[in-house]
Amino acid sequence: MNNKEKWIAFYTILRREIRRFMRIWPQTLLPPVITMILYFVIFGQLIGSRIGSMAGLPYIQFVAPGLIMMSVITNSYSNVVSSFFGLKFQRNIEELLVSPVPNWIILLGYIAGGMCRGLGVGILVTLMALYFTSFSIHSLTVTVAIVLMTSLMFSIAGLINAIFATSFDDISIIPTFVLTPLTYLGGVFYSINLLGDFWRDVSMFNPILYMVNAFRFGISGITDIDIIWSFSMVGLASIILFLYALYLLEKGSRLRS
């Protein structure tokens, strides 16, 4: 395939992915927005007004970046995991496997699809957040860079999950038992400085903590963690996951018999 053909193949995968999540928007776009509205109403306004400030910010302004990041993470991940597993389940993946599309294009296409949904939902949730509170951007570069990298990383992770999954249970285990606890314990709702030394040290092993804090820094200038660490962690993890996903596709693991 020449470069133009590769571009067409990439664009085809991306267009198909966008069409898929737009076609089923009541399942893909609406639920995260409703969930986040509930979070803002309950944690931001009802309970938040009694909590007061957190790390020097009104509580609703403290949780807003974390909630936006939470929606980006879960939607980037779930878009790729459900779409790619669906492709495998229906044997629809064979359309791609018999074609000359290189594996790295397949990988990029699905990552781009996951990022489009993750970022799209992130934008919708941000607009919702602006209805409940206001915030200015401390650093646009940091904000955009960390949200893009986080979405990228979780899109790749979703694809790896889909490759290994053999049933629909397998695509819900990681989001339910790994992603959700890590997100809730990743500094979305509290500053880790409130924790004792032991739990603060344990929290440092949670990758989502770094992403949420970098994003919060981009918006409000406040962070519990050095953002250089955040970018390094997310960047390194993305590279490792990308190479691993590519290796799995090249090997044909669980895709070719």
């Binding site: 053909e5 085809t12 359309e95």
Partner: peptide
């Protein structure tokens, strides 16, 4: 049209 796209066809 999607299948054609996988083969790099406009």
């Amino acid at each position: 049209i999607t299948q054609a796209g996988y083969f790099g066809i406009k």
